[in-house]
Design a protein around this nucleic acid. Structure first.
Lengths: 216, 216, 216, 216
DNA sequence: TATGAATGAGTGTTCATTCAT
DNA sequence: GATGAATGAACACTCATTCAT
């Protein structure tokens, strides 16, 4: 019945405009990855989408508005996927690794957005706030884990906020440096498991309890 | 009288031009810290120096040339000060902490240069190479330490280059996030000892040997 | 049934299209009153009508064509209503006041059209001609009255065309300045009788015969 | 002494930049007279000055800022020259005519500025305020004259503000219509004395005391 | 060395208009 | 008749860089 019409028509929710909109967001991510946000030209993005420059403004109010939307999606993904609460039956180490794994996966895909926000946050108050919120969201989540670790004797005496900030900094920036073409290993592909393995090892070790000296 | 003033003046090699040159470099760092390198306007820098825009080109061939020079100085400092070799009588932990301390000190002062290079490395091959070299220099140094730690049973099985990349990423980006006005803690001043304390703790723990689970 | 609905509908000539057409013209007038003709966006007008931008071009060939049509209606009203000839039994003063009253009433309603034409006449030859014709129509009518007044000893020696041009200028521009939101008295509502009273007094006095000095 | 240097050098106050600045303002007036302010292209103005488009922004922050400056000069001229107070020994009629004569002279030269301000005042709050102030300045001056005339029995019972508004409207708009290429008499040159003669006659008559009917 | 006016290529954005649906 | 996404020409404005003084 209604099924028929659904089969025959494009899904009613996916209008032509929404498709273009999504295409622009994807293309923008690719262009930002290569040129940075400041270097991203609206015309280039639209050329990548196969549309005229003016069409951009049918879907976004400005270049900045596009980045704000990309950031909103990015932040939403992080909130929903990364900040899943610790389940009762979950091993803290496993929880942390899961969190880190999700973090990695999202950043791996969206680091151009993060980089763009980082760049813009230096010169623009609005982006400074937006980016700050995103970082804080991640930091709060990790800080909770750090506090839990401290109850078990880990990282005793350290400020959980600072530790969380340092840890998210490591993951975030390492993701860029291991993923981007202009990163630390341009001639080498680092697969997800290797990356997550190294990062989660480092983080878990860093948060552990006992204080065995490095060389003994 | 005039003799006195001559005696008080800097050595004959420090000409008026060289002073302006240095002043430009300092001012540029301040402007980059606020606006980023892309947002840095030659005219603003020169205004901060109290000179006309045209005077910039007496001292630097271009805006990019200025950044290349800033980077050269930055890299030189890192090479000379951070990468001091491990002395025979030095405790590896202490060595690492010293290295980290120096790293921190230099970054704390020059992070605008690092940020500028990072940003430019995305769009410009020359800067990509220059910035890559600087990162590699740091990574090589830390990788050596990691290898030493592994001989003592730390971080066994992990790729020392990746570990070193992750660690330098943490320090570098944490330094930005704890120092810059648009960083993670805009309302809080984080003093050097606190910062170095947290970072060295995390790094030392991360590179240690035993593998005690987080929660037990 | 269908018969009924046909009976209830407007006359067959007033199609849906004609209604939209009229609605567009009314909405345009309102938008021009706020933004001017140059600032009038087709999309805004159509939004005010509750239709899509594209629908505009079903009814008008272009933005300019719309203004030309508005002008044609405006001119027609002026011709038919203002330029009624002096009847034999009519008092010249009363005739002038009647003319002025009608003039005022039309301008009060349609000044956005006049303003638009005025603005466009500066840059566009077509509108320059159209607007010139409308002004001339008014000037000719007033000039006839001036000539009549001169036969009675009023404004002797003055060029009737210039006098008529000055008088219509006064009425036209005063109407704008007393009516528009950005006019001379934004905080005050000037009712028709007051306005017509002042204007007709001034015009009648100005066209009178005797030359009593101002201060005696 | 110093005289010598003044003779040999360009006057110290008239720098190269100030000359260009003035040239731009003059050229802008000419372009606005032809195209209107909305139609005025910065590039055209600069071409008329014989400089590159970018040079405009050395002297003015924006197109709007240029108009604001033109308006400031215009308003200053009106304030200083038109609104000279009535001297004790001056005949009120002569005073009014002098006032009108100056008004005319300034408008004759600067009507493009007035027209531009009028156009912009419809869409822009800043210009609405600026233009309103200028009009009010003129209206206040004329209103004082009207009040004086009323004491001698002229225009009794009429609101002086409205009368003044109407009179300035007449002069202002008549000046445009008799001066601009797209005015009422494109094929005819109206010299200053004729114009002033007609206008002052009309105004003086309009403000007189006795109320002789038009036709008798 | 320094000035500062001038350059001119480059880009974000607007909006009247078109057209497939 | 109506839709609304798309077009594309146009234009204000920026800023690194140059150069006559």
């Amino acid at each position: 019945m209604n099924d028929d019409s659904e089969l025959n028509e494009p899904s009613p929710r996916v209008t032509k405009g929404a498709l273009t909109r999504t295409a622009i967001m994807q293309a923008a991510k690719r262009v930002i990855a290569i040129d940075g946000f400041a270097g991203m030209k609206v015309a280039d993005v639209m050329a990548a989408v196969g549309k005229s420059p003016g069409a951009f403004y049918v879907h976004f109010k400005s270049k900045e508005a596009l980045l704000h939307e990309l950031l909103a999606v990015f932040q939403h993904r992080l909130r929903v996927e990364v900040n899943a609460p610790l389940r009762a039956d979950e091993d803290p180490s496993a929880h942390l690794e899961n969190r880190l794994r999700t973090f990695w996966r999202i950043y791996r895909e969206d680091w151009p957005i993060a980089t763009a926000a980082f760049q813009m946050s230096m010169a623009d108050k609005q982006f400074a706030r937006a980016w700050h919120n995103i970082r804080q969201q991640g930091i709060r989540g990790f800080a909770a884990v750090v506090r839990a670790a401290q109850k078990s004797g880990g990282s005793v005496g350290l400020d959980p906020e600072l530790v969380a900030s340092a840890v998210t900094s490591m993951i975030e920036y390492a993701c860029y440096n291991w993923t981007a073409a202009t990163g630390d290993f341009p001639d080498r592909f680092i697969d997800d498991e290797t990356a997550i393995g190294v990062l989660s090892h480092l983080v878990l070790q860093a948060l552990r309890g006992s204080e065995v000296p490095l060389n003994q």
